[in-house]
């Protein structure tokens, strides 16, 4: 079961990368979202980061955080967003 914050991020991903056929509640928050999980790639990461900056004011920069950890799962991405959002 997703938390409300995770659901919000899940919907953002689904809209950003055109996965409208995926039900957010089918996503396991601790499973990989890139590659093996939902199969997202680096261009998707870019789309997701654009939406994150629009909706939450979060700027993703790979050099100051471990980008693989941030994008590891829905849970880790949501934690990052909650910690860094500016609006």
């Amino acid at each position: 079961m997703l938390t409300p914050e995770q659901l919000e991020v899940a919907n953002l991903i689904i809209n950003a990368v055109n996965l409208e056929d995926i039900n957010p509640n089918d996503i396991d928050p601790n499973e990989a979202i890139f590659n093996d999980g939902l199969g997202l790639d680096s261009i998707d990461a870019l789309e997701v980061s654009l939406e994150l900056s629009k909706q939450f004011g979060v700027k993703i920069k790979s050099s100051d955080e471990n980008i693989n950890d941030i994008f590891k799962s829905l849970a880790s991405l949501t934690t990052f967003v909650q910690a860094n959002k500016t609006h």
Partner: peptide, 17 residues
């Protein structure tokens, strides 16, 4: 999507099905 991911590069995964 999961089954396809095993065989093909993510760039070719369908959006949407």
């Amino acid at each position: 999507q999961k089954a396809l991911r095993k065989k093909i590069d993510p760039i070719f995964l369908p959006r949407p099905i």
